[in-house]
Design a protein around this nucleic acid. Structure first.
Length: 492
RNA sequence: GCACCGGUGGCGAAGUGGUUAACGCGCGAGUCUGCAAAACUCGUACGCGCGGGUUCGAUUCCCGCCCGGUGCUCCA
């Protein structure tokens, strides 16, 4: 099954295929580690995770490289303010970033590339450009890319630079550039700033050269796919193309994928708007990591997603339906045999699910056949018309669903526990929702003990006591389900 | 100003030139239950932003308009 993925470069749906026929080589722009990640960041990484998981479900191998920008203006500024070396400053946020990815079940790329560990490769690339006359050094020792050297500039973002004036806005530090649009490849060291002594002088890399150099290091001069947030299309990706293709004379990435922005309550998320949320903020408010994951991936990557708390609740409830359903299948006792109607339904769901994803990663469309199967299987179970082979066929569909969505298997306790531990240590306990604390106040063993007592009470038809226990548990976020197969409970 | 994306039920959202416009959440009624929960059944858009056009026929194609968002500067 081939994925047809919108290609920003061609402006149409193109099949995404590995040029070597085997392993898809992809590069995705990672974070700048100067703060905790917010949910907008994570929507992008989550959607790229959907991509790589689907490719592997479809039988493709993936070699995915992600950079970590661990040197830039903000980092230098913040580290200086905190009075620590940039390495110490970024290590904390890099670790937090990976913890957050883990909480959201985002798979680790095959290769992580830190900018500070690839300085020589960046310097080489600048030298290569200089040899071709596409890079020049200014008086202060910085290096710039000469836009005039790359006539195709603008082909990705479809910008016609000829109509654009060299703006009035000229950075005071950049007055020496040949043209206002020429961009920095290498920034000369300023006193006291972190810098590297290299053959092109003392300084530090520009942001764009970083990605070009690292992508080529791990994937070669030409590779299959480059992905990132839509905001990176211009100028970052455009600049990457210009410098890379000028240096090598080859096409840089064949396919470009851009994840659309996330809005919060219909507005772009920003600290000044007061609608800015990190993953940790949401976990402390009591939302589950799985719900956040599902909410952020259920709207296909090519569309803006309007994030709301109602959406998070919707996702929570949808996941509950799936989890309850699967528990019914795994806990129940079924007779041998099969129901041809369900066999056909499972097969159809599996096909429809994959086809939706293969169509430009239509996650919203892919959910539908799975939920349809849930309903028909629930109906069959109610009627005693679901058999062992049906159960197995349906569980296989759920497994495929989780291979990409990864929300049915309940792994929510750990991220919440870790967020609470972090809040404690970071002095953020005041941000923890009271309901979350109430939920944490009872252990699994205590729940089991109370439920055992309730079963006894019910047997003696002491419903007052039974209901009192249920109420007490409800207060602590425990939901009870009495079924023919026994009592099931879960945490809200 | 220029460019791009979108406007489908109470909310999110899929989709199609032509039978009953997916799916999820919510809500209402019922079945089941000691009562719940879960599950199931039924109901919940006389309609797919507005106005034209093309067509035997448009929510789906074309044009215009309105509204929302984003990009054009650091930003996932």
């Amino acid at each position: 099954m081939t994925l047809r993925l919108f290609n920003t470069l061609s402006g149409q749906l193109d099949p995404l295929t590995p040029s070597d026929g085997k392993t898809l080589r992809m590069y995705a722009c990672g974070p700048t580690v100067y703060d905790y990640g917010h949910i907008g960041n994570f929507r992008t990484f989550l959607q790229i995770d959907v991509l790589r998981r689907f490719l592997r479900l479809a039988g493709m191998e993936v070699r995915h490289v992600m950079n970590i920008t661990d040197v830039d203006d903000k980092i230098i500024r913040n580290a200086a303010a905190a009075g620590v070396p940039i390495g110490a400053y970024t290590a904390k946020y890099e670790q937090a970033f990976f913890e957050d990815l883990e909480a959201l079940r985002v798979e680790r790329p095959e290769q992580i590339a830190r900018a500070t560990e690839h300085i020589p490769r960046m310097v080489e690339l600048v030298e290569r450009l200089a040899e071709k006359g596409a890079a020049y050094r200014t008086e202060d020792g910085s290096w710039y890319f000469r836009l005039a050297a790359f006539p195709a500039y603008g082909k990705l973002s479809k910008k016609d630079l000829s109509g654009m004036e060299d703006g009035a806005r000229v950075d005071v530090d950049e007055y020496e550039k040949d043209s206002a649009r020429d961009f920095a490849l290498w920034k000369a060291a300023k006193p006291g700033e972190t810098s590297w002594e290299t053959s092109i002088g003392r300084g530090r890399p520009g942001w764009h050269i970083e990605c070009s150099a690292m992508a080529m290091t791990y994937l070669g001069e030409s590779f299959d796919l480059h992905a990132g947030g839509e905001d990176l299309m211009f100028p970052h990706h455009e600049n990457e193309i210009a410098q890379s293709e000028t240096a090598t004379g080859k096409q840089f990435a064949r396919h470009w994928m851009h994840v659309r922005f996330l809005l919060v309550d219909g507005r772009k998320m920003s600290k000044s708007e007061g609608n800015f949320y990190t993953l940790r903020d949401l976990l402390l408010k009591g939302y589950k990591a799985s719900a956040i994951r599902l909410a952020l991936i259920s709207v296909p990557y090519g569309r803006q997603l309007n994030f709301t708390f109602d959406g998070l609740i919707e996702a929570t409830n949808a996941i509950e339906r799936l989890r309850t359903f699967r528990a019914r299948l795994t806990d129940g006792a079924f007779a041998a045999g099969e129901n041809p109607v369900l066999q056909a339904a499972a097969k159809q769901a599996s096909v429809d699910y994959r086809e939706a994803l293969a169509d430009d990663l239509n996650t919203a469309g892919a959910r539908a056949p799975v939920f349809e199967l849930v309903r028909s299987a629930n109906t069959a179970m109610d009627q005693g018309q679901l058999f062992i082979r049906d159960r197995d066929a349906i569980l296989a569909v759920l497994k495929d669903f989780d291979a990409v969505f990864d929300v049915i298997e309940d792994r929510d306790a750990e991220p919440t526990r870790r967020a609470l531990a972090w809040a404690e240590q970071a002095g953020r306990m005041g941000d923890v929702a009271p309901e979350l604390l109430a939920r944490q106040s009872i252990t699994d063993e205590q729940v089991d003990a109370l439920l055992a007592e309730r079963v006894q009470a019910k047997k003696q038809r002491n419903f007052a006591r039974a209901d009192a226990i249920r109420n007490e548990l409800t207060q602590k976020g425990i939901v009870i389900e009495d079924s023919k197969d026994g009592v099931r409970w879960k945490r809200r």
